[in-house]
Design a binder for these strands. Structure first.
Length: 562
RNA sequence: UGGGCCGUCGCCAAGCGGUAAGGCACUAGGUUUUGAUCCUAGCAUGCGUAGGUUCGAAUCCUGCCGGCCCAGCCA
């Protein structure tokens, strides 16, 4: 392995170790993994971890990864979700070898079920759902055999065929694997493998009225595709004996290895399709792609980059330990990527008018600003400067503490790339709020340096009033104010009322493009911002992707505490 | 309570019998026309706990404690 290829590969983990060993021992020559979502919702960060794992392994071991829709429950699945899943995976930058659906295998699956019956290892049960549950036993007590467990193979064959041929109504019969009703592993107590469901399937239409269950479908689908390593989350550990049992009894040509890893949990957020769906259905958020959602589409709309999500998935690791990662880790990955790649611009979120009284009235001059402070390849742009400008309300304080490096009465500050200004007068409204500032500028300080070399500690951003664009800005924060919202009885209990703040009257410098771009801007000193999907030059809307690190906020908080 | 799995720094996480990597967070400095970035330093005599094996244990053994998952005709 060359050092170069080393860099592009992902971090080692126990699953990669297993695969590496299998290759060394010539157990496999070509690795095939799969990402198998059920198309019943949108993909979220938790899925991203699995996608990066499965597709990443395929890339690094020069194998393949299939995208397989696990679509065995027609009542929950829709084409809309299929489309979004494909879009999200492609956006992340991964490519699948093939994109089958479990429903493509329904004929084969049916044949395998028949084979299991012929082997005397499956039977048609006439118990209803309640009876089945009551006879399953408990965690500590064995279950009871179904009174229909010993039907003849012929009778089972006939009943199963009748099930398929629409002779019965939903719930009347099920096909069960004949394993052991006394197994300490409840998953092995004669699991249902086929049920009757009169529903139109998005892929197979009305061809079928019986549908195979997950446990029967998954192992066989993996086997059909020649998957070598079937990676899934920890809650399926108890299913593995069943996965293996089915493949063993059917003596299939190959036997994929199921390996389980811990699912991703992030503090203050949800990684459960069911609960995310609830947020959407109850209109707590604006849809699956609401920028506050931890869905791939929400994150994309918010301004996350695929690279940051991949880096995150890589550094959090893959283990069997349930853990909850801090949001800060994801945020750091985003900031790291955006800091290197985002073009700098100036914008004022909460404008405060500043009149520079000694600047000529109708004059406009162009100021040159770097598009990136460290990287000259980004070039420069011209920024108009004039007598009336806007600065951030937060950047002025009438009587400021010693450590406040910004503008205050009588003090001097640098306007980024432009001039030094000194505050001469504060004009107030009748209610005492500040209306505007009268300042003077030092013509000698053009570009932000003065010939006398005097030190000006503070530098603030600004925008020429006349040349600015007015925009709406949406600020986002965590949706919940509790660490583990999935434990909540009621999601409403812990909603963060400030998860979305809309600012109507923010000002942008002219060089900002208000049509959606692939990469966020950095608005200097404020954070990373990206035009929303609905933004246009006529009515601009920017989403704050992420704030900058803010050590001043920390100092401020400490000061107010003491 | 039967079965399965898991406990290494505040949060992740390497480690696989030879004397505790790394990241995030945090703390203290330095550079800086973004209080950003960047740089430098600090941050587990300790690996859930109690014993045992060994010249040597986070790594092996035993007991205990704690956490997660399983009783859908969902996936």
């Amino acid at each position: 392995m060359t050092p170069e290829s080393d860099e592009t590969k992902s971090s080692p983990n126990f699953i990669r170790d297993i695969i590496q060993k299998d290759i060394s021992e010539h157990k496999h020559q070509h690795i095939i993994t799969r990402f198998p979502p059920e198309p019943n919702g949108y993909l979220h960060v938790g899925h991203a971890k699995s996608i990066c794992l499965n597709f990443g392994i395929a890339e690094d071991f020069k194998g393949d990864c299939n995208l397989r829709f696990d679509d065995t429950n027609p009542e929950k699945e829709e084409q809309e979700y299929i489309d979004s899943i494909r879009e999200d995976i492609e956006w992340l930058g991964f490519h699948w070898k093939t994109n089958p659906s479990a429903s493509d295998y329904f004929d084969q699956l049916y044949d395998y079920a028949v084979r299991l019956i012929k082997l005397g290892l499956a039977y048609v049960d006439s118990q209803n759902a309640d009876e089945t549950r009551n006879n399953r036993g408990t965690l500590t007590e064995a279950g009871k055999n179904s009174p229909f467990r010993d039907r003849s193979i012929e009778e089972n064959l006939q009943l199963f065929e009748d099930m398929k041929n629409d002779k019965f109504s939903d719930g009347e019969y099920v096909l069960r694997a004949k394993i052991d009703m006394a197994s300490p592993n409840i998953k092995m107590r004669d699991p249902v493998i086929y049920r009757i469901r009169h529903a139109t399937h998005h892929n197979t239409g009305d061809k079928w009225c019986i549908y195979p269950m997950y446990d029967f479908t998954h192992c066989l689908s993996d086997m059909i595709e020649g998957i070598t390593h079937s990676l899934c989350t920890l809650e399926f550990e108890d299913h593995r004996p069943l996965y293996d049992w089915i493949l063993d009894k059917l003596e299939t040509p190959c036997h994929p290895q199921q390996i389980e890893f811990a699912r991703l949990q992030i503090k203050y957020t949800l990684t459960s399709k069911r609960l995310l769906n609830q947020l959407v259905q109850e209109k707590i958020v604006d849809g699956w792609n609401d920028p506050r959602m931890p869905t791939i589409s929400g994150m994309r709309r918010r301004g996350f980059t695929p690279e940051s999500i991949k880096t995150f998935s890589d550094i959090i690791g893959v283990t069997k330990k349930n853990s909850t990662i801090e949001m800060g880790v994801l945020e750091n990955c985003l900031r790291e990527d955006l800091n290197a790649r985002a073009t700098r611009r100036m914008a004022v979120l909460h404008p405060l008018k500043v009149i520079i009284e000694n600047y000529p009235e109708n004059e406009v001059e162009m100021i040159t600003g770097k598009n990136h402070p460290q990287n000259p390849e980004f070039g420069t742009r011209e920024i108009p400067f004039s007598r009336e400008i806007y600065i951030e309300q937060e950047d002025f304080m009438e009587d400021a503490p010693r450590k406040f490096f910004r503008l205050s009465a009588g003090r001097e500050v640098r306007l980024r790339f432009a001039y030094y200004i000194t505050c001469k007068e504060v004009i107030k409204n009748d209610d005492g709020t500040i209306r505007e500032l009268i300042c003077t500028y030092d013509p000698e300080s053009k570009g932000g340096q003065s010939p006398d070399g005097r030190k000006v500690k503070g530098t603030i951003h600004w925008v020429s009033a006349e040349h600015s664009t007015t925009t709406t800005v949406q600020l986002y924060d965590r949706l919940f104010n509790v660490e583990n919202p999935s434990k909540l009885k009621e999601l409403h209990q812990a909603l963060n009322p400030e998860s979305l703040i809309i600012i109507k009257n923010s000002k942008l410098e002219p060089a900002i493009d208000c049509e959606r771009q692939p990469l966020a801007y950095q608005f200097e000193r404020l954070g990373y911002f990206i035009a929303d999907l609905n933004s246009s030059n006529e009515s601009p809307v920017f989403n704050r992707t992420m704030t900058l690190r803010d050590s001043w906020a920390k100092i401020e908080k400490e000061q107010s505490r003491s």
